[in-house]
């Protein structure tokens, strides 16, 4: 297949058509920050962290959902993008309560890592302190809405990989919440297979197994992609 020539941060690259900007950047070790992206499931472009500037486009586009085109000139590290990444990170922290000190994922959390990467030392916006539920009704797992950043990775994994569609989203605006079945306790779910893939997909400490304590959570979100790749081999 004919490769396309594209330019990322003033360097020239050859890439196959049909690939997203994010895929090409990852192949060439060009760092793009992401939260809602998870290899193995469809991209939704919701976290807006992977926005890039493309010459000739007035709008910033999300690298995960935008396919490359010939001679595309992409900038991933402009001052504007860095500034917006910092604001996005702060808003993630301010939206719910991410008290790292008492979180199971402390030290292995993608959101925490993101904070370090953008150099966020404090949050300039007031915390919203929404009333969030902690669902402990499942025999093995816990869903803590306080840690949720609404990346919907669990929703997509459950739907696209496991095919159970236990998770979905309710409400709108800043009142959106992840729900199990029809907003019933997780433990009573008739669709959940307790496969635990959502726990691996979750970037923060919103989904975790009861068997661990603070700071012990180890997540392996890459198993989702591995699973999907192996399925392809079988099929």
């Amino acid at each position: 297949m004919n490769k396309l020539t594209i330019y990322i941060d003033d360097k020239q690259f050859q890439a196959e058509p049909g690939k997203s900007i994010l895929e090409v950047c990852r192949e060439h070790d060009i760092e793009i920050l992401t939260m809602c992206h998870l290899k193995g499931v469809n991209d939704v472009g919701a976290c807006r962290l992977c926005l890039v500037e493309i010459e000739g486009m007035s709008k910033l586009l999300s690298a995960c959902t935008t396919k490359i085109t010939a001679n595309m000139v992409i900038h991933t590290k402009t001052e504007r993008i860095k500034k917006y990444q910092r604001i996005t990170t702060e808003l993630f922290f301010a939206e719910r309560n991410h008290v790292c000190a008492v979180c199971v994922a402390n030290g292995t959390c993608e959101l925490q890592d993101l904070g370090y990467k953008v150099g966020m030392d404090h949050i300039r916006y007031p915390f919203l302190f929404p009333k969030c539920e902690v669902d402990t009704s499942h025999p093995w797992y816990v869903m803590d809405q306080n840690r949720c950043i609404m990346c919907t990775r669990c929703v997509r994994v459950c739907n696209e990989v496991e095919g159970a569609h236990n998770w979905d989203v309710k409400n709108r605006g800043y009142q959106v919440r992840i729900i199990s079945d029809f907003d019933t306790p997780w433990g009573e779910s008739i669709t959940c297979t307790s496969c635990g893939k959502c726990l691996q997909a979750c970037p923060t400490g919103a989904l975790w197994p009861k068997a661990i304590v603070q700071g012990q959570m180890k997540k392996n979100p890459e198993i989702i992609d591995e699973l999907m790749e192996r399925r392809k081999m079988i099929l």
């Binding site: 996005t88 808003l91 007031p126 609404m150 409400n171 800043y174 009142q175």
Partner: peptide, 21 residues
Amino acid sequence: CMDESCGKCLPCRVGTKMMCD
């Protein structure tokens, strides 16, 4: 706009709430 935001993307979901406050 804050009430009508769908809540999918972060800037609109949280940004409108922050601006409204």
